[in-house]
C-alpha cells in the first residue's frame, strides 16, 4: 500500500497485532458522515483530507464551506473552517486569503451553490486570480433541498422542478463550469475529474493536488471540478448512479485539464481536454 493511503501518524498495527494498511487521514475527524449511501462527498472529502496531509497544510489551512449538503465538510475535516452564505464562498475566501496570504485557503462547493447563485463570485474570484483553491462537486442537482434542477442538470434529466425532464428551449443548456473558468485571466489551473471509478478517482486526486499547488506556489486561482453522484435525488441505486456518471455525465462534461499555467507564472495556452472515456462526446 502506498504511504499516501493512511494518516502520517497512523499506528502500524491494531490491538490484535494486525497490520493496518488503511486509515483515515490525520486531517479528518473520526466521525461517520451524514451523507446518503452512494454519495460521493465522502470520497471527495477524503481526497481533500489526504492532500492536506500530504502537502503538510493541516495547521495552516482555513476551509470555506458553502451552502448545500457539503456545508458539513467542517464537521468532518479537522481544520479551521468558516461557513459562507449561499454561493459566496469565493468572496469569503478572498477576504480570508487577502487578510492572511500565508494561509492555505480553499472552498468546497456544489453545483447548486457555485454555478447558480454563486456564479458571479466564482467568476470574479477566478478572473482576479485570487490565490485560492476551489473544489467544485458537480452532481447535476440540488441535493440538500430535495433534488431541484441545477444549472448543471442534463438535458432530459428529471428533477422535482423539471419533472418532465430538462428542456433546452425552456431551461437552457447545462453549464460547463470548467470550460468557463479556464477562459478567465486569473485561473492558473483548471481541470475536471470524476469520482465514478477507481481510475478516475486517482486521476481526480492528481488534479486536486495541482489545484492546491498553484495556490501554495502563488501562481493563481486553482479550480477542480469533480463529477459526483447523488443516488437519492437521481432515484438510482449507488451502482446505477455511478454508471450514469460514466454513460451520461462524462460525455457532456469531458474530463481533463482545461488550463495550466507554467511554473514561472506566465500564462500557458488553453489546453484541450485530455482524452477520457467519452470525452469526444462533449465537444
Amino acid at each position: 500500500m502506498p504511504k499516501t493511503q493512511g494518516a502520517a501518524s497512523a499506528p502500524k498495527t491494531n490491538q490484535t497485532g494486525e497490520e493496518l494498511v488503511f486509515t483515515r487521514p490525520a486531517s479528518m475527524v473520526d466521525r461517520a458522515t451524514h451523507y446518503c449511501p452512494g454519495c460521493h462527498h465522502g470520497i471527495a472529502h477524503r481526497l481533500v483530507g489526504e492532500l492536506i496531509d500530504e502537502l503538510g497544510l493541516k495547521e495552516n489551512t482555513v476551509a470555506v464551506c458553502s451552502i448545500g449538503c457539503s456545508v458539513f465538510l467542517y464537521n468532518y475535516i479537522d481544520v479551521d473552517s468558516v461557513e459562507a452564505p449561499h454561493g459566496r464562498a469565493p468572496a469569503v475566501a478572498t477576504g480570508v486569503k487577502r487578510a492572511r496570504p500565508d494561509k492555505f485557503v480553499f472552498t468546497y462547493q456544489g453545483d447548486g451553490d457555485l454555478a447558480s447563485i454563486g456564479m458571479a463570485e466564482i467568476m470574479h474570484a477566478a478572473n482576479r486570480g485570487e490565490r485560492m483553491s476551489v473544489v467544485f462537486v458537480n452532481n447535476t442537482v440540488y441535493g440538500m433541498t430535495g433534488g431541484q434542477m441545477a444549472p448543471t442538470t442534463l438535458i432530459g434529466q428529471k428533477t422535482t422542478t423539471c419533472p418532465g425532464g430538462r428542456c433546452k428551449d425552456r431551461e437552457g443548456s447545462p453549464i460547463r463550469m470548467s470550460e468557463i473558468i479556464a477562459h478567465l485571466g486569473g485561473t492558473a489551473f483548471c481541470a475536471r475529474g470524476s469520482l465514478d471509478s477507481v481510475k478516475n478517482i486517482r486521476q481526480a486526486k492528481k488534479y486536486m493536488r495541482q489545484a492546491f499547488e498553484v495556490q501554495t506556489k502563488g501562481l493563481g486561482f486553482g479550480f477542480v471540478e469533480l463529477l459526483a453522484g447523488c443516488p437519492t435525488n437521481w432515484r438510482l441505486s449507488p451502482l446505477a448512479a455511478n454508471k450514469r456518471i460514466t454513460d451520461e455525465m462524462i460525455p457532456y462534461f469531458p474530463l481533463g485539464v482545461f488550463k495550466e499555467v507554467e511554473g514561472d507564472g506566465t500564462c500557458g495556452s488553453m489546453l484541450a481536454p485530455e482524452s477520457a472515456p467519452g470525452a469526444e462526446g462533449g465537444k
Binding site: A26, K58, E59, N60, T61, V62, C65, I67, V71, Y74, N75, I77, D78, V79, D80, S81, V82, E83, V96, R100, K103
Partner: peptide
C-alpha cells in the same frame, strides 16, 4: 479567529468553525 489549528505544541487546540447553520 481562524488562522489554522495547531495539533501539537503550545498552541494546540481543536479546529474552530464559524457558522450560522
Amino acid at each position: 479567529r481562524l488562522i489554522g489549528a495547531p495539533s501539537t505544541g503550545k498552541g494546540k487546540r481543536d479546529h474552530r468553525i464559524i457558522k450560522s447553520l
